[in-house]
Design a binder for these strands. Structure first.
Length: 646
RNA sequence: GCCGAUGUAGCUCAGUGGUAGAGCACUUCCUUGGUAAGGAAGAGGUCACGAGUUCAAGUCUCGUCAUCGGCUCCA
C-alpha cells in the first residue's frame, strides 16, 4: 500500500501501482472523466502512470494550466498523426503546447500545404479523436529510439535523440503514430472535441536561421465545441481592437513609406491623446520629486563608447552621422541613460542631494529589422517616458517603492485592474555573467523583493533573467479581453555609474558610487497608446479622449445656438466640435457613435427656446435634456473622478 | 534579415488574357429634419514599381518595394 496526500491535506491509502486515474475514480466517477493529467510530488505526469511510492497528488483538469498543456501537447501528436496519414513521408520537428494551443514544426518534403488544407486536417483529427485512442507510454533505449527514427528517415528526431541521455528516452504511441516525447499526455484522444487550425508559418529548425526552415502549423483544441466558438469570438474581438485598424479609423496615427518604415506619425487626434497622457505623467512625477530635462536627438560616438552601447550595438544600429568638415561621428540617440549620466556628472553631488531623479520624454531611434516592425508596438523611432534615479544603496528600496507607487497609480487610473510583476534576479550559479559586487547585487535584489512585497504586488521571481548590469522588475497587464502585455519596467544598474565614473560625497567625506535606477512606467508612448487602444477598443476614458463631445444641430437653423453652446462648453474646459453637415440627426448620431465620441449634444428648437442641451451618451443612449452647466458638471466630475489620487 | 501570403479609387473590397468596377468617404445640388445610414448628379485610377511572355496583361512569368502572418532579434 502507498499513502497519497491530496491537496486538502487528507491522506488515503491505495494499492501500490495505482494510477492517478484510479485514485480519481475512487473519489468520483465525474472527476475521473475530467482528469487530463496529474501532478505527483509536484511533477506533472500521465494520469495513467502507476504510482509506486508515497506521494502528494493533484488531479489536473481543463481548469488547470498544466491540464490544458497536457491536452494541447497531446493534440499536437494527434495533428501530427493526421498530417502523416494525409501526407505520407513528412518529417517532424518539435510540437509543443503554447499559451493558446500548440504548434508542430513539420518538413513537408515535396508536399505543398496552405490554409485551404486546414479543414481536411481538422476533420482527420476529429476522426482520430473520436476513436478514443489511448496515449501509450514506452521507455526505450537510446539505440532503440535511433533505430526507430533511422528506419523512418526522420533526421530531426534523430538529432534530438542524439542530444538525449540514454535511459531518459520515452515514446508515446497513439493509434499508428509513435513520437519521441517525454509527456505527459492525456489518457486518450476522446477529450479532444473541437479542433481549429489557426495559421501556418515558416520557422527555422532549432530557431537557427542558418538551418532549414520548417512549416509551422498553429492550432488549438477544446474539450467542448462551445469553448472553440468562444475562442473564435475572442479572436474576432481582438481583430476589431487591433490598434492599427482603430488608429486609422480614428485618425490617431499613420505611417508613410516616404517618411520611412517604422516611423510613426502622430495625427492631430493621436497627438492630443498622447499629450494628455504625457501631461498626466508629468504631473505625477512632479509630485514625486522628478526633474524634467530635455536632451538632443543625436549624441557623439564617444558618449556611446563610454556607455558601452557602441561596442554592443554599434554595428546593428542606424549607422553614424559624419560631420563634413571636422569628421566627427554622431549616433541617433538609442537611449537616454548616457545623457542623463552626463547630467548627473556635470556637478558634484553630496549624499544630501540624493536621490536625484531625472525624467525625460526622450525620443530614441533603434534600427529594428524590417520584418520586426509592427504598428506602434515595434517601431524604429519612439518616445520613452524615461527617468533615471541616482541614489545611495540604502535609498534603493524606498526609491523602488516610489516607482512602484507611480506605476500602480497609472494602472489604476487607466483601468488595468489585473497585472503581475516579474522580479528578474541573477543566476546565482553563474555570477561571472554579471557585473557589480555580490554585496550590491544582494542588496539590490533584496530591495526589489521587499519593495514589491511591501507594496503588496503579485510577483513571480525568475532567476537568471536579470540584465547583466542589474536586477529588474517588469510589469505585465491583462487587457479587457484577457490578453497579456508587458508595459512598465524598473531596472537597477551598476554598470553605467561605473562606466561614467559617477560619484557623490558621503557623510564620511569619501567618494561613493551611486546606484542608478532606470524606469519607464508606460514603456514607450507608442507602445502604451497601442495597448490602450486594444484595451479600450478605442473608447478612451473621457479625460484622455481627443473629442469629448460633438454637437449635432437638428438643422442649419440651429447652427448659431450650436456655436453658443460650444463656446460655453469650451469655457467649461470641455473639448469637442460641431457636426455642421446638412444631414439628418439619425445620420449624425450614427457617425458620432462609430467615431466613439463619448457625448453627443443634440440641439434644436426645444433646446434653443429653453437654453438646454439634449445629451446622448456613446453606447448607452439618450440621457434627456439639461442645462449646459449641468452637462459641464457631469463631464468634469467624470474626468476628475478618473484622475484623482487614490 | 529569413520563409510564406498579399498589394486594384481616400477606406473596405469585387474583377475567369479582350472597354477599370461596387459600397462608403469626397464635391455640387435638392432636402431642414428629434436619437445608429434622406435623395440626385459629379469627380476620383501609372491596377505598388520595373522588366518579360503575348495580337492583347489588373490577370501569366521574373525582379524590386511595401504590408500582413510567423521565425530570428529587441539596449
Amino acid at each position: 500500500m502507498i499513502n497519497i496526500t491530496l491537496p486538502d491535506g487528507s491522506v488515503k491509502q491505495y494499492a501500490k501501482g495505482s494510477s492517478a486515474l484510479d485514485i480519481a475514480k475512487s473519489i468520483s466517477e465525474g472527476l475521473a472523466r475530467n482528469v487530463l493529467a496529474a501532478k505527483v510530488n509536484d511533477k506533472v505526469v500521465d494520469a495513467m502512470r502507476p504510482i509506486n511510492e508515497d506521494a502528494s497528488l493533484v488531479l489536473l483538469t481543463w481548469n488547470d494550466a498544466e491540464g490544458k498543456a497536457a491536452m494541447w501537447h497531446s493534440s499536437a501528436h494527434v495533428m501530427a498523426e493526421a498530417i502523416e496519414m494525409l501526407y505520407p513521408g513528412v518529417k517532424f520537428g518539435i510540437g509543443p503546447d503554447i499559451e493558446n494551443g500548440f504548434y508542430y514544426d513539420i518538413d513537408f518534403m515535396n508536399h505543398t500545404i496552405s490554409s485551404d488544407d486546414f479543414e481536411k486536417i481538422e476533420n482527420k483529427m476529429l476522426e482520430l479523436a473520436a476513436q478514443k485512442l489511448p496515449f501509450m507510454r514506452r521507455e526505450v533505449s537510446k539505440q532503440e529510439a535511433l533505430d526507430y527514427f533511422g528506419k523512418k528517415g526522420d533526421e530531426y528526431k534523430l538529432e534530438m535523440i542524439n542530444d538525449l541521455e540514454d535511459g531518459t528516452i520515452s515514446f508515446y504511441q497513439t493509434g499508428e503514430f509513435t513520437d519521441l516525447c517525454r509527456g505527459p499526455h492525456i489518457p486518450d484522444t476522446s477529450f479532444i472535441k473541437a479542433v481549429k487550425l489557426l495559421s501556418i508559418a515558416g520557422a527555422y529548425w532549432r530557431g537557427d536561421e542558418k538551418r532549414k526552415q520548417l512549416t509551422r502549423i498553429y492550432a488549438i483544441t477544446f474539450p467542448k465545441k462551445s469553448e472553440l466558438t468562444d475562442y473564435l469570438t475572442l479572436l474576432e474581438e481582438a481583430k476589431k481592437r487591433d490598434h492599427r485598424k482603430i488608429g486609422k479609423e480614428l485618425e490617431l496615427f499613420m505611417f508613410s513609406e516616404k517618411v520611412g518604415l517604422g516611423l510613426p506619425i502622430w495625427l492631430p487626434k493621436g497627438a492630443a491623446l498622447r499629450e494628455r497622457l504625457e501631461n498626466f505623467l508629468k504631473a505625477v512625477q512632479r509630485k514625486a520629486g522628478y526633474e524634467l530635462v530635455m536632451c538632443p536627438h543625436i549624441g557623439n560616438v564617444n558618449l556611446y563608447k563610454t556607455s558601452g552601447h557602441y561596442e554592443k550595438y554599434g554595428a546593428d544600429s542606424f549607422q553614424p552621422i559624419n560631420t563634413p568638415v571636422e569628421g566627427e561621428q554622431f549616433f541617433l540617440k538609442p537611449m537616454n541613460c548616457p545623457h542623463h549620466c552626463e547630467i548627473f556628472k556635470a556637478k558634484p553631488h553630496s549624499y544630501k542631494d540624493l536621490p536625484v531623479r531625472i525624467a525625460e520624454f526622450g525620443t530614441v531611434y533603434r534600427y529594428e529589422q524590417s520584418g520586426e516592425l509592427h504598428g506602434l508596438t515595434r517601431v524604429r523611432g519612439f518616445t520613452q517616458d524615461d527617468a533615471h534615479l541616482f541614489c545611495t544603496p540604502d535609498q534603493l528600496k524606498d526609491e523602488f517603492k516610489g516607482v512602484i507607487d507611480i506605476i500602480l497609480y497609472i494602472f489604476k487610473t487607466l483601468n488595468f485592474p489585473e497585472f503581475t510583476a516579474q522580479v528578474s534576479l541573477r543566476d546565482p550559479n553563474n555570477k561571472v555573467k554579471y557585473i557589480g559586487s555580490d554585496e550590491n547585487w544582494e542588496k539590490a535584489e533584496r530591495a526589489i523583493i521587499e519593495a514589491a512585497e511591501e507594496k503588496g504586488l503579485k510577483t513571480e521571481v525568475v532567476t537568471g533573467e536579470a540584465a547583466f548590469y542589474g536586477p529588474k522588475l517588469d510589469f505585465m497587464v491583462r487587457d479587457a479581453i484577457g490578453r497579456k502585455w508587458q508595459l512598465g519596467t524598473v531596472q537597477v544598474d551598476y554598470n553605467l555609474p561605473e562606466r561614467f565614473d559617477l560619484e557623490y560625497t558621503g557623510a564620511d567625506n569619501q567618494k561613493h558610487r551611486p546606484v542608478m535606477i532606470h524606469r519607464a512606467p508606460f514603456g514607450s508612448m507608442e507602445r502604451f497608446v497601442a495597448v490602450l487602444i486594444e484595451h479600450t477598443g478605442g473608447n478612451f476614458p473621457l479625460w484622455l479622449t481627443p473629442d469629448q463631445y460633438t454637437i449635432l444641430p437638428i438643422s442649419d437653423k440651429f447652427m448659431d445656438y450650436a456655436e453658443k453652446v460650444k463656446q460655453q462648453l469650451t469655457e467649461g474646459e470641455l473639448r469637442g466640435m460641431i457636426d455642421e453637415r446638412s444631414e439628418k440627426t439619425g445620420r449624425k448620431i450614427r457617425d458620432a457613435e462609430m467615431k466613439k465620441i463619448p457625448y453627443m449634444i443634440i440641439v434644436g428648437e426645444k433646446e434653443e427656446a429653453e437654453g438646454l442641451v439634449s445629451v446622448r451618451k456613446h453606447g448607452e443612449g439618450d440621457l434627456g435634456s439639461m442645462p449646459i452647466a449641468d452637462f459641464i458638471k457631469i463631464v468634469n466630475d467624470e474626468v476628475h473622478q478618473a484622475i484623482k489620487e487614490n
